[in-house]
Amino acid sequence: MIEATSQPAATRAAKPAIERGRLTWGGLALTAHAVLMYLFLYVPITILVIFSFTRDEFGVRWTGFTFEWYTRLFANERLMGAAANTLYVAFASTLVSTILGTLLALAMERYRFRGRNATDALLYLPIVIPEIVMAVALLAFSAFVFDLIRLVTGESLRRNLTTVIIAHIAFSISFVVVVVRTSLKNFDRRLEEAAADLGADSWRTFWRITFPLILPGIIGGALLAFTLSLDDFIISLFLSGPGTSLLPVEVYNKVRRAVTPEINAISTLMLIFSISLVVLSQAVQRRR
């Protein structure tokens, strides 16, 4: 499902030149910069992982190796349950928001229609809104809708994971749209026209030409949505119901009191999980 390699023929032809370019000072500087950036990104993560094995109960010093925090973590149903909830919410909201967002991006880039400017504004709003405001708005709104439902059907609803997913989709869609639109902007439409000239119907043209070309954008958007959902704290806090706690909320409350290596341990596990997922999907793709 994941492949960021689709290239127009023109770029492929240019590859050798770029390969040569890498031997220049500019290429070296670029590589050095990238190495530094990856270090910058990974130093805190490495510390996190290392200190999930430290004996130091503050998790800030290396005082010896232990697995204790992991055993403790596995016994901690709250944290484990919250982690499972978080992954479930992230997958569900990413799936829906990526589909809806891609469709919207296509509509916005390919069509001129009345209300397009208003739609444009509406699409940017979720990006512009401070998280806390959206959280409060959704909380008040869900209370209102639940009251309405109770009046009409007599059924008493509660916030639960579904309300969180609905909210996460609502804020993720816009991010997906922004990224996918970027890849549609530099899109060479003559490729589609050529396909149409060769007799492909629009459905085939989309799947054979358009989709592979904008796939990097779709993947980028999906990854962004996934990351946002995993990390969201304040909307999750307000829209989750009793007993359906999410990891960021648990971590926030815990971290504000005292960070323990247990938190480092669950972060390490989440990392391992994410990485194996990526590796797995890559392996599957290679085989195909």
Binding site: L41, Y42, I45, L230, P248, I263, L271
Partner: peptide
């Protein structure tokens, strides 16, 4: 680039 961001923001 993204993997570090799959740990909790606060923890990072």
């Amino acid at each position: 680039i993204l993997i570090p961001f799959w740990t909790n923001f606060l923890v990072r």
